[in-house]
Write a protein that binds this DNA or RNA. Structure first.
Length: 446
RNA sequence: CGGGCUAUAGCGCAGUCUGGUAGCGCGUUCGACUGGGGGUCGAAAGGUCGUGAGUUCGAAUCUCGCUAGCCCGACCA
């Protein structure tokens, strides 16, 4: 993409309403624009990152054997009356009435709807196990939205629901989600820890939250410093291998890591040596639940088992806050000049800064670089504005592309361009061809 | 939902106390000089001062209502 043909409304000054880094930087980098409290338009750059996160989530869910579908944002109230949550949910649920005076709601989650879909189509244990998920906008009418997309009212969430015959099967689904989530966050360049969690208004008795350490996080967490050494890495997991998944679950949950909601001083003191105890703030970016027959019983989601008995299915629900992750990524990856995207989620792979727009040699070199990068399947952003070097560097630093190729008459006289890492600031001079190779190499691993 | 605050040009703000018909910086447009970290000079465009009523000869400014937004707390993916 050529910057002069893109839509990137960056701000030089900080908007007054933005208190935390991610909110401030998303506004300044032209990623989002507020439409109303806690409701945002996603401008092209933000939309690109959001779409990239969606893509990673889709890939990892399907790798785990989960099936995508798409349910509506607006739901009929009667489903929620059936589960008993229509009255239980409170004013956070946005209630709407249509022209026929029918009570509707903008879905804050989809347990009822998915259970309705399931029960109308599945009646035998032979069709289990089944895990369905979607990535869809949700609405929770927060009293006090804040921190940009980190705590909006409208938010994009991946929510998945497993249907199993037995608790053992459902716990295997639980482990599948735990492992697929670990993979998902690592691909995004984030280290997220599973922490034992309260089950909250959704209910149930088996739950972990995934938290990313960040000073602006809303949760206080207590953990063993050994947890920060955990890496999922490139392990190629067979998601049907129960023992292997259980092992990952055991490895990751053995180390003490809890939020303030479930923190237990006595257990903490007993299991974690004093010098390894850590307290920090963290952002919640996902949560998994096993809740058994909480919805399948009242909503009659029954299947016939091998003995010919009709039994309620065991369910769980599993969420990843996709739009919130954009904020979390920035909280975990920025400096005073702007965002620093991990390679796995960057909106463009590399920025090209032409330091003398209109100069024949510089223009030609940039055009060749741009074409060469595209030919290698890369997505470059070419800053072809008639701006001075400082302005181009500032813009590219702000929007956080992890790599920049700087092209100027001075280097071109020696046949070189400069490849600079946004994260370390280190640069290296090399031929344009070598720069293309290097960037291609970097992204081959992502 | 309790407490506090704000609303003036795309963004950040001054002007409000003491009423007299709106200003600064950034950004934008045009021209020139520039060209390796938001450059310089010159010209220009852009505002029903959130909204409704009231007071007044006259309201961004005073009074009352309404709306929207922000901060702290409680709540929350």
């Amino acid at each position: 993409m050529r910057l002069t043909r893109y839509f990137l409304p960056v701000l030089k000054e900080n908007p007054a309403e933005a208190q935390i880094a991610s909110h401030r930087l998303m506004l300044r980098a032209g990623m989002i624009r507020q439409a109303s409290a806690g409701i945002y338009s996603w401008l092209p750059l933000g939309f690109k990152v959001l779409s990239r996160l969606e893509q990673i989530v889709h890939e990892e869910q399907q790798r785990a054997g989960h099936i995508p579908l798409l349910m509506p944002t607006l739901q009929p109230a009667d489903l929620w009356q059936e589960s008993g949550r229509y009255n239980a949910y409170g004013p956070e649920m946005l209630r709407i009435r249509d022209r026929h005076e029918r009570d509707m709601l903008y879905g804050p989650t989809n347990e009822e709807m998915i259970t309705d879909i399931f029960r109308s189509a599945v009646s035998s244990y032979k069709e289990l196990p089944l895990t369905l998920y979607h990535i869809q906008w949700k609405f929770r009418d927060e009293v006090r939205p804040r921190f940009g997309v980190m705590r909006g009212r409208e938010f994009l969430m991946k929510d998945g629901y497993n249907f199993d015959l037995t608790m053992e099967d459902a716990l295997h689904a639980y482990n599948r989600h735990l492992v697929s989530y670990l993979r998902t966050y690592e691909r995004m360049g984030l280290q997220a820890f599973p922490m034992r969690a309260d089950t909250g208004p959704i209910g149930g008795d088996y739950s972990h939250e995934f938290l990313v350490l960040a000073p602006t996080g809303e949760s206080e967490v207590f953990y063993d410093s050994d947890a920060t050494g955990l890496r999922f890495g490139d392990r190629d997991i067979d998601f049907t291998d129960r023992a292997a998944l259980q092992q990952v679950y055991d490895d990751w949950t053995a180390i003490y890591a809890r939020t303030d909601e479930t923190h237990d001083e006595a257990v903490y003191a007993e299991r974690v040596p004093e010098e390894r105890r850590r307290t920090a703030r963290a952002i919640e970016v996902g949560q998994i639940f096993y809740f058994g027959t909480k919805y399948s019983e009242p909503m009659k989601a029954l299947v016939v088992n091998e003995q010919g008995e009709r039994v309620p299915v065991h369910m769980g629900s599993h969420g990843i806050g996709v739009s919130r992750l954009v904020g979390a990524l920035i909280e975990a990856n920025h400096d005073d000049r702007g965002i620093i995207w991990p390679e796995g989620v960057t909106p463009f792979h590399v920025g090209i800064a032409n330091l003398k727009q209109g100069d024949g040699a510089a223009d030609a070199a940039c055009d060749a670089l741009y074409a060469g990068l595209k030919a290698r399947g890369l997505d470059p952003l070419y800053d072809d504005r008639s701006e001075r070097a400082g302005a181009k560097f500032a813009t590219l630093d702000l929007i956080g592309l992890p790599w920049r190729i700087t092209v100027g008459p001075r280097g071109l006289a020696n046949g070189v361009v400069e490849l600079t890492s946004r994260r370390t600031g280190e640069s290296e001079e090399m031929s344009p061809e070598a720069a293309i190779d290097r960037v291609a190499q970097i992204y081959a691993k992502v």
